[in-house]
Simulated scan of single mutants.
Amino acid sequence: MTPDEARTLLEQSLRVVVPDADLTGLGGETDIRERFELDSLDFVEIVERLSQGAGFRIEEDEDLRTIDAIVGLLSRGTPHPV
């Protein structure tokens, strides 16, 4: 998955969980939990959507706070198939 595809997947996932989210101007260092006031259930749902979209399991202990971290993980892939 390219970084652009990864970012699109993240934005799509955020729109489902936080429909009124303003996604304009999000920098790579943006902490998505803070910016969108995600509780743990919302965050787990986003991680699940990312896993399904990427085609591999994302571990909950991954460091996925920032947009750059999420895009990097999705772009690299992981050895844990869904």
Rank of each mutant, 00 (worst) to 15 (best):
T2V: 11
T2F: 08
P3Y: 12
D4I: 11
E5M: 13
E5F: 09
A6T: 09
R7D: 03
R7M: 05
T8A: 08
L9C: 12
L10C: 11
L14W: 00
R15I: 06
R15T: 15
V16E: 13
V16D: 12
V16A: 11
V17Q: 04
V17S: 09
V17P: 01
V17D: 01
L23Y: 08
T24W: 15
T24L: 15
T24A: 04
G25P: 05
G25Y: 12
G28E: 10
G28S: 14
T30K: 08
T30M: 05
T30G: 00
D31E: 12
I32D: 00
I32E: 04
R33S: 05
E34S: 14
R35W: 02
R35F: 02
F36L: 08
F36R: 10
E37F: 10
L38K: 01
D39H: 03
S40K: 13
S40V: 10
L41G: 04
D42L: 04
D42A: 09
D42N: 06
F43W: 06
V44K: 00
V44L: 15
V44T: 06
E45K: 02
I46Y: 07
V47A: 03
E48L: 14
R49C: 00
R49E: 13
R49G: 06
L50M: 11
L50N: 02
S51R: 04
S51L: 00
S51N: 09
Q52M: 05
Q52P: 03
Q52N: 10
Q52D: 11
Q52C: 10
G53W: 07
G53I: 03
G55S: 12
G55A: 01
F56M: 06
R57M: 15
R57N: 15
I58Q: 11
I58L: 08
I58V: 05
E60A: 15
E62F: 07
E62M: 14
D63A: 13
L64D: 00
T66M: 08
D68G: 15
A69D: 12
A69E: 05
I70Q: 04
I70H: 09
I70K: 09
I70V: 04
G72C: 06
L73F: 01
L73N: 05
R76A: 13
G77M: 02
G77R: 06
T78W: 13
P79R: 12
P79K: 09
H80D: 09
H80Q: 03
P81Y: 12
P81S: 13
